[in-house]
């Protein structure tokens, strides 16, 4: 029984994603980026048919399991563009460091200002960082890792949906800048979005995601001490 449910959930996820990609290619409104619409459709279906997330994950966990090798696979575009990375190394490191500091400080400061509970503050602090690292960071500073992953997903989906509008508004057109914006603010989901612009943007996205994860894990405990 469990195996049938698993296969059904995997097929449903792939089918819905495929349909959403078709839809997106047809009307091409950035807001309807497939990851956002697929998530919305799947959650709606699960709620309608009273299926729990736990049951969905019988199948979902197999797709989730591929995320690990997929992150490993990001080395390929990185390798392909290694000379560009070297050329813009200073620009990349500087922007990611600035972005990571802004991300940690602005999130914590606003939360303190609005009188949010300490546990929530500690869980939302690393929201711009890729989920496995964000969960580790939250664990170390004393927040709730599962909740941290939720905030990470919100930052990711929001970036993928509204990033195109924001970057257009700010007249960001340099491929390096596009990759950095998505990778630093919206980690892996942003990187997937950046890869839609082109292979270079995707490579820069993955390097930004990696750098910001490393950098955030080093400074986050100190930033937290500073504000809390």
């Amino acid at each position: 029984m469990k195996i049938i449910v698993s296969i059904l959930m995997i097929l449903a996820t792939v089918l819905i994603y495929w349909l959403m990609v078709k839809l997106y290619n047809k009307i091409h409104i950035p807001l309807l980026v497939p990851i956002a619409t697929s998530t919305f459709v799947i959650i709606s279906l699960l709620i309608t048919f009273h299926i729990s997330y736990h049951t969905y994950m019988y199948g979902g966990k197999w797709i989730d399991e591929l995320l690990g090798p997929a992150v490993v696979a990001l080395a390929f575009p990185l390798y392909k563009h290694r000379s560009t990375l070297k050329k813009y190394a200073v620009s990349i490191v500087l922007s990611v460091v600035v972005g990571t500091i802004i991300g940690l400080c602005s999130g914590i400061m606003m939360a303190v200002l609005f009188g949010i509970d300490k546990e929530l503050i500690l869980s939302l602090a690393p929201k711009s960082v890729t989920s496995p690292v964000a969960m580790d960071i939250t664990d170390i500073i004393g927040g709730n890792p599962t909740l941290a992953a939720v905030y990470v997903m919100i930052a990711g989906i929001f970036g993928a949906m509204f990033g195109p509008y924001l970057l257009k508004l700010l007249r960001i057109h340099h491929p390096i800048a596009i990759g950095i914006g998505y990778g630093t603010a919206s980690h892996g989901i942003g990187t997937a979005r950046a890869a839609e612009y082109g292979s270079l943007e995707g490579a820069i996205g993955s390097i930004s995601m990696t750098l910001s994860a490393i950098f955030a894990s080093i400074i986050c405990p100190y930033v937290v001490q500073l504000f809390l």
């Binding site: 996820t13 980026v33 959650i43 969905y56 989730d64 997903m153 990711g156 997937a192 979005r193």
Partner: peptide
């Protein structure tokens, strides 16, 4: 890559 994130985003 985007497809692979869906089980995590559905977790919301």
């Amino acid at each position: 890559l985007a497809l692979l994130f869906i089980p995590a985003t559905v977790g919301v």
